[in-house]
Amino acid sequence: MISIHSLYKSFGQNKVLNALDVTIQEGGIFAILGPNGSGKTTLIKSILGMVIPDSGEISINDVSVRESWKYRQKINYMPQIAQFPGNLRVNELIRMIKDLRQKPAVEAPLINKFNLEPFLDKKLSTLSGGTKQKVNILLAFMFDSPLLILDEPTTGLDPASLIILKEMIHRERQAGKTILVTSHIMQFVEEIADEIIYLLEGKIYFKGSIAELKLKTSQDNFEHAIAAISMNKEESWVKY
């Protein structure tokens, strides 16, 4: 369980997270949505300890993450943009991450699934964006951890790989894992998410299932419902 209590973070004048409160239960797929710059990545990076919050408390299973690093053993993270040291080869990178995490990893079936064998001996700087993203997915899914954090996992993937990715996410869910995912592709979100966490201006604006969201906004279409909650926001803004 991840519980976040009154989290603040600003970059210079820009207040990214503003008294954010949220509790994420164990098990299920949680989609973190919100317009560009609403603080999705900052929230994820705060959970991972890559961004240090100005104030507030984040705890995973009732243990605070501040100044701690061992908890990351239980998190698989897939960053938004696959950036890897360019002079490493793919299999060297896999070996290195395995060595650093000191955890059993099952990479062979994933390499097979994504047809990565021909790229194993290639340097990462020579790979295409889509292939890099596949490596990115591979690194996140080869370990068995209770929490998965996927930041825009669909970027640059071809339809076939997208189907494989969805299958993999479903399998992890069936294994009872907690999966946090951000995406701008509503169709993808609608297909996989159990619960929506909608961020707006650094606050949680909506948290609940897709059905609840549709009911609340009285929209049948998920994409329109998402658009509608940001519209509502404008109205409430005026009332202030």
Binding site: G49, W69, R72, F84, R101
Partner: peptide, 16 residues
């Protein structure tokens, strides 16, 4: 030059 490497490492269970 190793910024990418650093960012990769920061998400791993390693002390900063």
């Amino acid at each position: 030059n190793s910024r990418e490497f650093t960012e990769l490492l920061l998400a791993q269970p390693i002390k900063r």
